[in-house]
Amino acid sequence: MTDADAPAEGMRPASGTAPAGSDPPPVLAHGTAPDPDGMAAQPGAATEAVAPVSSPLPGAPKRRRHEFLYFAVRNKKLLVGISVVGFFVLVAIFGPWLTSYAPLATGNTGWHPPSGRHWLGTTYFDEDVFSQVVYGIRASFEVGVLGGCFSVLLGMLVGFTAGYRGGWMDEILNLVTNVVIVIPLFAMLLIIGGYLHQLSLLWEAALIGMFSWPWAARAIRAQTFTLKNREFVGLARLSGESSSKIIWREIAPNMSSYLMLTFILLFGGAILTASFIDFVGLGPQGVVTLGTMMNNAFFWDALDLHIWWWFLPPGAIITCIVGGLYLTNAGLDEVFNPKLRSL
């Protein structure tokens, strides 16, 4: 599902490693990744807590990188996922050269089915669907990347601080996380969106990020907890480095693969959430997005006028992009996580 609310969890046990009092029942010995509708549930590291960082010794990264590459090129999920997403990235970049129509240029004669002139037909307003799709993919990637970045950054800020500092800071941040996690993201966005004058793509992404960080934060916090007690962190601390430096230099790199997985899930989630906002008509105006295309198609009678070429492509493309991202995530997880490679 959308994962918009709670994407990044899933790979890692929040509670398995966290001290009592974190959200899932403390008795959860398996500590497995309670994750949004099981999406990408990756219990792999559950018992052992942190698989990808299991050999965080100096010198190890290089050897491991080769190992990852070896498994990466043999992982079907990863390959399929990356090629699907990569294909649409290419379309987003080079698509505008393939079309001779501006996305919002109207013709004069109503809607037309796909033809040689208009590969995907035209809309009610005789706009070229293909060029709308091309620009829509761009917008989707923009929102996805920005929204994903916003929430990962917020999640890192909260997660690292809470996990590394511990104590009352952790208590407070954890409380905030637990509160935000329960509030339904989309309902919240609807209320805010209803009052904003007009949403730009950037604002849309920022709003999505503002409410979808808790899962990232919770998972990162749990990881930080385990990492901060490792020797190399202790060494760094002894050598008198500042906390932020330790987090940035020692802890973050050791969970970089993990952060990447988190980002990919949030990326996909942001695209889906944006498509909801755009579909209900609260999205950015004057910009073509795949969500606004569906909104226009729906409210301009595409169903009853049988203009199927108007609403089929945008939804199918979102499905492929987000599905591809999730697949990439699962593939990467298997690559980073030896326990999952077996099947």
Partner: peptide, 22 residues
Amino acid sequence: NNVELTDFLTGAIDLSNNFLPG
């Protein structure tokens, strides 16, 4: 208006006083 067009075309309503695109 899209819901109304559906209702109108399926014969559920006899008179539609809405703008029905198309």
